[in-house]
Computed example of a mutant assay.
Amino acid sequence: MYWLGHDGMFGSAVLPGVMLIVFVETGLLCPFLPGDTLLFTSGLLAAQDGAPVDVWTLAPCAALAAVAGGQVGYLIGWRLGPAFFRKEDARIFKRRYLTSSQQFFSRHGRKAIVLGHFVGVVRTFMPVVAGASGMRYRVFLLYDVLGAVLWGVGLTVVGYHLGNVAFVDTHLELMVVLVAASSTLPVVVSAGRAYLARRRAAASEPASPSPRPDPANTSPGCPPGTGIRR
């Protein structure tokens, strides 16, 4: 199996790269990073011959990075609260991200810290919500560690075991492409819905009436606006 080169070029960077991306997604408010896809694909590749890192090293390290990211997110929420989300049209810190995470938190309570690891944007902003809401740190830490282990270890190990299936091993490149493509579907669907909503809103707006000429300012045989008042 080639790992970015015949001589294993960049192979030593796989583990720190995975940990860095997981940490940034869960701790530095970057919801556009593909954490789920990364862990699953890393597990797939770790099952191949010549993998630069063992899955039993990769999985706990990914969970550790997720825990570290969660602590940073909690600190941001505790210190700064919703200050990042005041502008509705901000490029990254959109208020709707915080709102959806708050709704998820209020619906599921403490277990939302665990479940939130498996839900895209919620995984990124749930620690911020927990910190901003004043959740006790010990409680948050307990549930965050549990969720990070289930997510980080779980997805990686699932990918690893799937990578040991003969069909997947034979068609590994195809499987990686399919996983990557499936991870973009929510983004495409969300963008499509937003586009259709804007189109419907624009179509439902009443057309502005055209201005009528003032009869008092016109006279027969003269263009509107040039007549002589009588």
Rank of each mutant, 00 (worst) to 15 (best):
Tyr2Asp: 14
Gly5Lys: 10
Asp7Thr: 06
Met9Leu: 14
Gly11Phe: 04
Ser12Phe: 12
Ser12Val: 10
Ala13Cys: 04
Ile21Cys: 11
Val22Ile: 10
Thr26Leu: 02
Pro31Cys: 01
Gly35Glu: 01
Thr41Tyr: 09
Ser42Phe: 05
Leu45Ser: 07
Ala47Thr: 00
Ala47Ser: 13
Gln48His: 07
Ala51Glu: 04
Ala51Asp: 05
Val53Trp: 06
Trp56Glu: 09
Ala59Cys: 02
Ala63Val: 05
Leu64Gly: 09
Ala66Val: 00
Ala68Asp: 04
Gly70Arg: 12
Tyr74Pro: 11
Leu75Gln: 05
Ala83Glu: 10
Phe84Ser: 06
Glu88Ile: 02
Asp89Gln: 12
Phe93Asn: 02
Arg95Pro: 00
Arg95Ile: 03
Tyr97Arg: 08
Tyr97Val: 05
Leu98Arg: 02
Gln102Phe: 06
Gln103Ile: 01
Phe104Pro: 03
Phe105Lys: 07
Phe105Trp: 08
Phe105Ser: 08
Arg107Asn: 00
His108Asn: 07
Gly109Tyr: 09
Arg110Ser: 07
Leu115Asp: 01
Leu115Val: 01
Leu115Asn: 01
Gly116Asp: 01
Gly116Thr: 00
Thr124Phe: 07
Phe125Gly: 03
Met126Gln: 12
Val128Cys: 03
Val128Asn: 02
Ala130Glu: 06
Ala130Phe: 06
Gly131Ile: 05
Tyr137Phe: 13
Tyr143Gln: 03
Asp144Lys: 02
Val145Gln: 08
Leu146Val: 15
Ala148Phe: 03
Trp151Leu: 00
Gly154Cys: 05
Thr156Val: 13
Val158Trp: 06
His161Ile: 08
Asn164Gly: 11
Asn164Cys: 05
Phe167Met: 11
Thr170Lys: 14
Leu172Gly: 01
Leu172Ile: 10
Leu172Cys: 02
Glu173Thr: 13
Leu174Pro: 00
Leu178Phe: 14
Leu178Trp: 14
Val179Cys: 14
Ala180Ile: 08
Ser183Tyr: 07
Thr184Asn: 04
Thr184Phe: 10
Leu185Phe: 04
Pro186Cys: 03
Val187Pro: 00
Val187Lys: 03
Val189Leu: 14
Ser190Thr: 12
Ser190Phe: 12
Tyr195Leu: 14
Tyr195Ala: 15
Tyr195Ile: 08
Arg199Gln: 15
Ala201Cys: 01
Ala201Lys: 09
Ala202Gln: 12
Ala202Thr: 12
Ala203Ser: 10
Ser208Ile: 15
Ser210Glu: 15
Pro211Ala: 15
Pro211Tyr: 14
Pro211Glu: 15
Pro211Gly: 13
Arg212His: 12
Asp214Phe: 11
Gly221Glu: 07
Gly221Lys: 09
Cys222Arg: 15
Pro224Leu: 11
Pro224Met: 11
Thr226Asp: 10
Gly227Cys: 09
Arg230Ile: 07
Arg230Tyr: 09
